[in-house]
Amino acid sequence: MVASTTSLGRSGLHDWVIQRITAVVLAVYVVYLSAFVFSADSLTFAAWQGLFGQTWFKIFSLISIAALSFHAWIGMWVISTDYIKPTGIRLVFQALLILSCFAFIIWGAQILWSV
């Protein structure tokens, strides 16, 4: 079978593995961030800025943004190949999808390193 050119991993197994790994990254990030938000009196501006001021947390956040983008890429790619049958519309959708994934990562990096 022809490799799927617009899928992220270009093989079913790659996509599947990436989908699982990014899901784990996202879960860890969400749990960590929620714990921070819900832990007592941490929600001051200073605490919030302190958290995002640390380099390790910036990297962790950027990795999570990338994980979210790749997770969405794979998921939305599957949905588009299930439900969008006309090739033209499908191509436009996938192109927009891929571009926005990269845009989010770059934008996210810019925001994180401006703290």
Partner: peptide, 10 residues
């Protein structure tokens, strides 16, 4: 043979 995006992984 099954390692594409559709055959098995769909």
């Amino acid at each position: 043979d099954l390692d594409d995006a559709y055959s098995l992984f769909r």
